[in-house]
Nucleic acid binder design. Structure first.
Lengths: 204, 204
DNA sequence: GGCGTTCCGATGCGAGCGCATCGGTACATC
DNA sequence: GATGTACCGATGCGCTCGCATCGGAACGCC
């Protein structure tokens, strides 16, 4: 067995370079040459790891999805100690990518979402991520709404969908500069607060 | 004075071609040659109307913005007869682009939003559109919330921002196939219903 | 009908793209 | 240390891109 290379690790390395480039110039600005240069490897190495560019992009999107859902899960793992309500708030924050240090990740996410609209393969990956997130949100929302003491708690799945869409919309609006991160944060938490204060039987 | 051409009309014609192509293959698939072919003109004509490709894309984005805000305004024009609450719902529907026939427009919008994240010129255009929409939404929300008889009505601007972000998020989720248009519609209207039913002093 | 002006379609150009190829290198094995 | 294999970096290829260029068509005007 001659020289061996940790392929998985290298793939992650390359995916990281893809993210940094996509953050700077958009997904269109991601070329194999630039990726190789940024990752500090040769083009040949990139081509060895991924047969085509599309495969590379799909892998990168998968990495991003794992990172986001992983962070949400990490927050949830520490949640039993806190209330489900707080946990849901934190999860929504993680998803909305409002922090300054998440800015790059948000831009990459947006680039991939746009591409997914015309690329079935990417759309599949993205749908799986959204499904996982919605499931997690729904569980938390159910728990939190029951805690709120509603005799007939609102539909937790709908609450989760609303929250997920709101988080994504806020991410977008921050990215294009329509809202500041602070404004988005305020909108998000006002929405969450409204969830618990809604009267029994409310549709929201 | 020799041959004269309606430049404004031709620009709109070309912008239409850009939209159709962006719908099919994403913004990356929009090339000057394809645009010219789709618009039924020569490449030279396209280059005469727009000095650069970027100028062409910016103009197209402006057209889309005008179309959306124009439709919202049109709905609003007929609103004095109805309640502000209904008008706000209709405006939100228009913005969310959930109908099947809006699908193409939604895809184009998403492509431009992603590009705007790395293109200041596009971002400016987009911000102006969002500002207009938010203003319109805020006015309607204020009116509707006052009609709802709150002694201390919730912040209408925040309600408008929430609604706008939610609408955009839903558009995105429908595009990637996470939600069906019907599910998104249901989420949107449940959120609207929750607005009126929130108790006085509610944060939402 | 010649003329001047405006417009346009075809063509060329340099650059950059994704991908294929291949000789050389590094390393486990014996 | 020879050898076989897995790997990689460099280079080449075919293509398409955005943009520049230019000869000629179209047309109001004298």
């Amino acid at each position: 067995m001659p020289k061996q290379v940790d392929h998985a690790e290298r793939r992650r390395l390359i995916a990281g370079a893809v993210c940094r480039l996509a953050d700077e110039h958009g997904l269109e600005g991601v070329t194999l040459r630039d990726v190789a240069a940024r990752a500090g490897v040769s083009m040949g190495a990139v081509q060895r790891c991924f047969r085509t560019k599309e495969e590379m992009l799909a892998f990168t999107l998968g990495q991003i999805g794992e990172r986001v859902t992983g962070r949400v899960r990490a927050r949830l793992a520490g949640s039993p100690a806190q209330s489900a309500r707080t946990a849901l708030g934190h999860a929504a924050e993680e998803t909305a990518l409002l922090r300054a240090e998440d800015r790059a990740e948000a831009r990459v996410w947006l680039a991939f979402v746009a591409q997914a609209a015309v690329s079935p393969a990417l759309a599949r990956t993205l749908r799986a991520d959204y499904a996982r997130l919605q499931e997690a949100f729904t569980g938390l929302a159910r728990e939190a709404l029951e805690d709120a003491g509603h005799p007939a708690p609102p539909d937790p799945r709908r609450a989760a969908r609303t929250l997920l869409a709101l988080a994504d919309g806020l991410t977008t609006h921050v990215l294009v500069g329509h809202l500041t991160p602070e404004e988005a944060y305020e909108v998000l938490h006002a929405h969450l607060a409204g969830l618990w204060e809604a009267p029994p039987g409310s549709a929201e």
